Amino acid sequence: MSTWKQKRFWKQVSVAESQGRFAIELDGRRVKTPAKVDLLLPTRAMAEAIAVEWEAQVDAVNPHTMPCTRSANAALDKVQMQHSEVADMLAEYGDSDLLCYRADSPVELVQRQSEQWDPALDWAASELNVRLQTRRGIQHQPQDVEALQSLRDRVQALSDFQLAAFHDLVGMSGSLILGFAAAAGWRSPAEIWTLSRLDESWQEEQWGPDEEAQAEAEIKRQAFLHAKRFYDFC
């Protein structure tokens, strides 16, 4: 396996406006994506955040310390090429949304799910004009076709950069509704992440924490928080 890493070759990082978009320049040379597309960004705030990441590189370039750069690369190299397919894939979460599948027992868990998840469904009914129905148990029961189409249209309307962030908001939480709620700022991203972990938190209370599971959950939490930050940059 190759251990080669790109070395820092530049002295100055700058942001340059170009046709209503913003480019990152290293000593006057534009940064490109891995697919060799110019890294042209929709907002100055996003460009400045990415410029900070490039400036922070010392000797070898470490992509793991450049989350905004990675998300922008994904928007241009992946989402832009298959926007409709990605949007449809995420919209499918609405038909099996985490918030809609409720426990039969114990009563304490049933009550907690209702108290913490119902407000998110109420928010969706008010702000998205879609009311998803809850079910008991894990057996799939389809949601209303018109409601799902309305949600699909909203996902399809997102820009490539928004969709790149929305992908992680939905995928990490397991909920299309929580993805929309996070994007809209219904509650803080940390609060919304906690809502998505309600069942796991319950299990930890009953059986005790699992260190490996907690470490994996923390990685996902950080990715979720980053996705919200990147979405706001859009």
Score class of each variant (00 low, 15 high):
residue 126 S to F: 03
residue 58 V to L: 13
residue 120 A to F: 11
residue 232 D to T: 14
residue 102 R to L: 14
residue 142 P to N: 04
residue 96 S to Q: 10
residue 202 W to H: 12
residue 160 D to G: 01
residue 219 I to G: 00
residue 48 E to R: 07
residue 196 S to H: 09
residue 158 L to P: 03
residue 37 V to M: 06
residue 121 L to D: 06
residue 169 L to E: 06
residue 131 R to P: 00
residue 50 I to L: 03
residue 151 L to W: 00
residue 12 Q to M: 11
residue 18 S to G: 01
residue 44 R to M: 04
residue 43 T to H: 01
residue 193 W to D: 06
residue 148 L to T: 11
residue 62 N to F: 03
residue 205 E to R: 10
residue 129 N to R: 13
residue 115 E to D: 14
residue 115 E to C: 08
residue 91 A to G: 07
residue 124 A to L: 12
residue 113 Q to R: 06
residue 203 Q to D: 03
residue 67 P to I: 12
residue 169 L to A: 08
residue 138 I to F: 12
residue 112 R to H: 07
residue 222 Q to A: 00
residue 148 L to W: 09
residue 99 L to G: 01
residue 172 M to K: 14
residue 140 H to G: 04
residue 126 S to L: 15
residue 91 A to I: 08
residue 72 A to F: 12
residue 225 L to V: 03
residue 63 P to H: 09
residue 52 V to P: 00
residue 220 K to H: 09
residue 198 L to D: 03
residue 199 D to K: 12
residue 226 H to G: 03
residue 23 A to M: 14
residue 4 W to G: 01
residue 179 G to Y: 14
residue 156 Q to S: 12
residue 87 A to W: 14
residue 61 V to K: 07
residue 219 I to Q: 07
residue 140 H to F: 08
residue 16 A to E: 12
residue 109 L to R: 01
residue 137 G to L: 09
residue 203 Q to C: 05
residue 151 L to I: 07
residue 46 M to L: 15
residue 164 A to W: 07
residue 115 E to N: 08
residue 4 W to I: 14
residue 55 E to L: 14
residue 85 E to I: 10
residue 18 S to R: 14
residue 89 M to W: 02
residue 34 P to I: 10
residue 226 H to K: 11
residue 66 M to Q: 13
residue 195 L to S: 02
residue 135 R to P: 02
residue 11 K to G: 13
residue 6 Q to T: 05
residue 200 E to D: 08
residue 166 F to G: 08
residue 64 H to T: 12
residue 233 F to P: 02
residue 98 L to I: 08
residue 32 K to Q: 13
residue 94 G to Q: 05
residue 211 E to V: 13
residue 153 D to G: 01
residue 89 M to G: 10
residue 60 A to Q: 07
residue 155 V to T: 03
residue 112 R to K: 11
residue 117 W to C: 00
residue 100 C to P: 02
residue 144 D to H: 05
residue 64 H to N: 11
residue 140 H to V: 06
residue 221 R to Q: 12
residue 230 F to G: 08
residue 199 D to L: 15
residue 117 W to K: 02
residue 92 E to A: 15
residue 168 D to C: 03
residue 200 E to G: 10
residue 223 A to T: 08
residue 57 Q to M: 13
residue 213 A to I: 05
residue 234 C to Y: 01
residue 34 P to Q: 08
residue 24 I to M: 05
residue 84 S to Y: 04
residue 145 V to K: 10
residue 90 L to F: 09
residue 208 G to F: 03
residue 49 A to P: 04
residue 79 V to M: 10
residue 230 F to Q: 02
residue 213 A to C: 04
residue 64 H to I: 09
residue 176 L to H: 01
residue 129 N to S: 15
residue 202 W to Q: 04
residue 82 Q to C: 12
residue 136 R to V: 10
residue 109 L to P: 04
residue 216 E to V: 14
residue 50 I to H: 00
residue 42 P to M: 08
residue 177 I to W: 05
residue 214 Q to R: 12
residue 25 E to R: 11
residue 133 Q to C: 08
residue 186 W to R: 04
residue 10 W to K: 12
residue 53 E to K: 07
residue 22 F to K: 03
residue 144 D to K: 03
residue 53 E to S: 01
residue 44 R to S: 07
residue 125 A to R: 13
residue 183 A to H: 08
residue 179 G to P: 09
residue 116 Q to P: 00
residue 35 A to R: 11
residue 220 K to Q: 13
residue 220 K to T: 13
residue 46 M to T: 00
residue 142 P to V: 09
residue 110 V to Y: 05
residue 166 F to Y: 02
residue 216 E to I: 15
residue 182 A to F: 02
residue 65 T to E: 06
residue 74 A to G: 02
